[in-house]
């Protein structure tokens, strides 16, 4: 049963990816305005322009361009970036770890914060604290990550300068790392001073990304917890004299985990989308920041590569959510 669901999802993922690839290819080819014109100095000769068109394969008929393009992609060749004059794959792969680490940290913060707030609100049921939490939650939900990021830059970066406001690491620092997963590698090789340093750079963008998601998690989880608190087994536990905190954490939580997890999965893709602008604000070297530069420069090969990288991330997140749901749902697991 479950493997059939999984197989279905895998096929769907492959179809989605192909769909994205086709959409990207078509959209980018109908661009009004010649991308070559943006690459060269004004006053270049007609022969130079033609030369470049041939080099980037833009002189071929569109169907042939597509077959060349798709063959290249299957062979892992996404072409060369117009603006950076380097292979797209290398550029994108070099940047992906930075975005993954930022999004992962933000997800962890959002879940911790959301669950914590929901538990406190459940314990404070009917008191002023619950009203306060609900109101703050509503405000947080109304404000997008773009505004949070700028407020943090202003307050914690400038007015009360405790955190750095740009980059991933201090450029003066001499890094001794083999991969681009700075945070993970530093952590697992025991360089905890570096971990702390990286976190000071990542914490503001991560929290800005996390806040809207934390508010949604808190709201849904609070609803699920309060519903569970009315169930017979919880009432029984209370009669037995267990503390309220213990009941919430041990009994009610079990009831709330599945709905919250499936919601988090869907919302996490929005968080990953948010990295584009938040990375920009903090000059953080991930693929989101790169995507904005690529759009500004109309660097078509790079845009294609980046959009596909994002699409792969979204598809993997959805697959992971499906897997977790199968694992947590006994009916699907044993069916």
């Amino acid at each position: 049963m479950w493997y059939r669901i999984l197989l279905n999802r895998l096929i769907l993922a492959a179809v989605t990816l192909l769909g994205v690839a086709v959409v990207v290819f078509v959209l980018v080819r109908v661009v009004p305005g010649d991308p070559i014109a943006m690459m060269i100095a004004p006053g270049a000769s007609e022969a130079d322009i033609q030369d470049l068109r041939v080099r980037y394969g833009l002189d071929l008929p569109i169907v042939q361009q597509f077959t060349v393009w798709i063959k290249g992609i299957l062979a892992g060749d996404f072409g060369k970036s117009f603006s950076l004059r380097q292979g797209v794959v290398g550029l994108v792969v070099g940047r992906v770890p930075a975005t993954l680490e930022l999004a992962g940290l933000a997800l962890a913060i959002a879940m911790g914060l959301g669950v914590g707030i929901a538990v406190v609100a459940t314990l404070a049921r009917g008191r002023w604290l619950e009203t306060l939490i609900d109101n703050v939650n509503g405000l947080v939900l109304a404000v997008p990550d773009f505004i949070w990021a700028l407020v943090f830059v202003l307050v914690l970066g400038v007015l009360w300068p405790v955190l750095p406001i740009s980059g991933r690491v201090d450029p003066r620092l001499d890094l001794d790392l083999a991969s681009n997963f700075y945070l993970a590698e530093a952590f697992f090789t025991g360089q905890f001073k570096l971990v702390g340093h990286l976190l000071t750079h990542m914490i503001m963008p991560a929290v800005a990304l996390a806040l809207p998601l934390a508010a949604i998690i808190a709201r849904v989880m609070k609803g699920a917890l309060q519903e569970a608190m009315l169930q017979d087994y919880v009432v029984l536990a209370r009669i037995k004299g267990f503390s309220r905190l213990r009941i919430v954490l041990q009994e009610a939580m079990r009831n709330a985990v599945v709905p919250v997890l499936s919601l988090t999965g869907v919302q996490f893709t929005f968080l990953v989308g948010g990295t584009v602008i938040v990375e920009r604000i903090f000059s953080y070297p991930g693929i989101g920041n790169m995507a904005i530069d690529a759009v500004i420069n109309r660097d078509l090969p790079l845009i294609q590569g980046l959009v596909l990288a994002f699409a792969i991330m979204f598809i993997l997140i959805n697959l992971a959510v499906d897997l977790i749901t199968i694992v947590l749902n006994p009916r699907l697991r044993h069916g």
Partner: peptide
Amino acid sequence: PPVLLSIL
């Protein structure tokens, strides 16, 4: 995803 669509 909306972000991809808007970038494109």
